[in-house]
Design a protein around this nucleic acid. Structure first.
Lengths: 204, 204
DNA sequence: GCAAATCGTTCGTTATACAGAACAGCAGTT
DNA sequence: AACTGCTGTTCTGTATAACGAACGATTTGC
């Protein structure tokens, strides 16, 4: 957490949001050869606001962005995405299937799902004795690991973050960085894991 | 009642904007089985705001919508467009219940994996009381359903075939035909379901 | 049973997005 | 030079989105 609230270095927020929103809006506007006034008229947004948005000096309202997007004949997402043209590359990374086996002999990973059908996902049944540790090297870029805890208590560390999950909980985390699963409970732990490889690209 | 809210003609925006944004957000949140507090923590948006957004009582900031979209594993546009761009269930909701529930009320499906993202699979947590029945209309062509039984005893009927599965077993069957899951055991049943969609285009 | 937790909602305050007007910089006319 | 007409920017005041706390209403536990 630590959601730095209260701190507002940047004019508004923007930081993680549509970082380049302003630039994109302006680029589109100019592409259409519109002045601020014209776009204002067409979109119904005050030109002062548009000016501020273009300079990333404000954190616009959704409705404002929608109105601008419409006037610019595009969608919110495209505007957000900086419209980095084609970013979708079908990263069909086949890459060797990470054959996860118990390193310390305390974890067992059984494949219950398809692994050759399509490589968009693999599905494992995960069992771990108490104190068992499963360390994984990074999986292909964009891979997301889903862990559903059936029983026991697992601690997942991915990157620098660590979380503990109890039965019934589902964790979703990036698996393209080193990650680790530890059974911190007293007894055995059981979880279902789905490894999803990013395929459709353009997921923001 | 200083600020006369409560009764408001036009909430704020809405009109032309994200008409159903609130409903969509709520539907996604419930699909993920998140409470306002949880979503708040995950997204960094105050839960009071989320509440208001869901009720269309506010005209959220772009950054707010982005944060929510990310937490809900989707994009702004999908949220805006009333979404459901994709396939699935949407259950011939005769009742329009945002949550996935069987008609007899004995089965509950919670989405724990990505449900937006154009892509290839969805992941559910399935709970059923004794005698609970979950009937599904055919999913899109090529869809395969994977069911991993955690506890209880389930009987799956797909097409004309019927099978019974016990804990630890995994079933894989076509889901592009009507299919049915029945908890034939005495107690509750619990399973993890993965719905795999046929890859789009290329490859067969 | 009452306490503790958790749900969604509402309250009080602060920060700020918004609109419109006023402002500044630069073309072309005349 | 001025006067237009445009550009984009910077000033207001007001409405309100955001947060966090406090609130009743359930649900859970002991």
């Amino acid at each position: 957490m630590s959601t730095r609230r209260g701190v507002k270095s940047t004019p508004s927020n923007n930081g993680e949001s549509g970082a380049e929103l302003g630039k994109t809006i302006q680029r589109l506007r100019k592409a259409y050869n519109l002045s601020l006034g014209e776009l204002s008229e067409q979109s119904g947004v005050a030109k002062s606001i548009i000016s501020q948005i273009e300079r990333n000096e404000t954190n616009p309202t959704l409705s404002t962005v929608i109105r601008l997007s419409r006037a610019l004949d595009t969608t919110v997402d495209e505007v957000l995405r900086g419209e980095t043209s084609s970013l979708f590359i079908e990263h069909q990374t086949k890459s060797g299937i990470p054959m996860l086996e118990s390193q310390d002999g305390l974890c067992r990973l059984a494949i219950v799902g398809p692994l050759s059908l399509v490589d968009s996902f693999q599905w494992y049944d995960f069992h771990a004795k108490s104190k068992g540790v499963l360390e994984s090297e990074p999986h292909p870029q964009g891979t997301i690991e889903h862990l559903y805890i059936v029983s026991g208590e697992l601690e997942i560390t991915t990157g620098t973050e660590t979380k503990t999950a109890k039965p019934g909980e589902a964790l979703r985390y990036r698996a393209d960085v080193p990650h680790k699963i530890v059974n911190v409970g007293q007894g055995d732990a059981h979880a279902v894991m789905v490894l999803a490889l990013r395929q459709t690209g353009q997921g923001q």
